[in-house]
């Protein structure tokens, strides 16, 4: 059973690239926040700065992973994007802009 979303190739391609870019950007942010150590501040302040940094490092890292997973959801095979089943089609559609949320998914 073939599944397809009625959306242009270019739009899907742009979405995949954009998710990849967000993943890279967020990875850069994780590296930056990981370096925050509060040296030159008192022990209790530095400890809290580090704790804060660790907590948000975890969240930003998680966002980076999610962005990369979203980019990877677009499977490019033999010159086109492949959708294997209805569930994957719905996932991809929800990664596209809000305006595309009703783009038809067809099965044949």
């Amino acid at each position: 059973m073939a599944v397809m979303i009625e959306v242009s190739y270019d739009e899907v391609d742009r979405a995949k690239q954009a998710w990849s870019t967000q993943a890279e950007t967020l990875t850069g942010a994780t590296l930056r926040i990981a370096k925050v150590n509060g040296g030159g501040l008192s022990a209790r302040v530095a400890a809290e700065v580090r704790r804060f940094g660790r907590r948000w490092h975890t969240e930003i890292d998680s966002l980076a992973t999610l962005a990369q997973d979203n980019a990877d959801a677009f499977v490019f095979v033999k010159g086109t994007y492949e959708v294997s089943d209805l569930q994957q089609a719905e996932r991809i559609r929800s990664l596209l802009p809000w305006a595309d949320r009703h783009d038809p998914i067809r099965t044949a």
């Binding site: 967020l26 850069g28 370096k35 948000w56």
Partner: peptide, 13 residues
């Protein structure tokens, strides 16, 4: 400065 930079990156995303 570190927090501001990370905030700026997050703002773009």
């Amino acid at each position: 400065g570190d927090f501001r930079t990370v905030g700026a990156v997050l703002h773009d995303v």
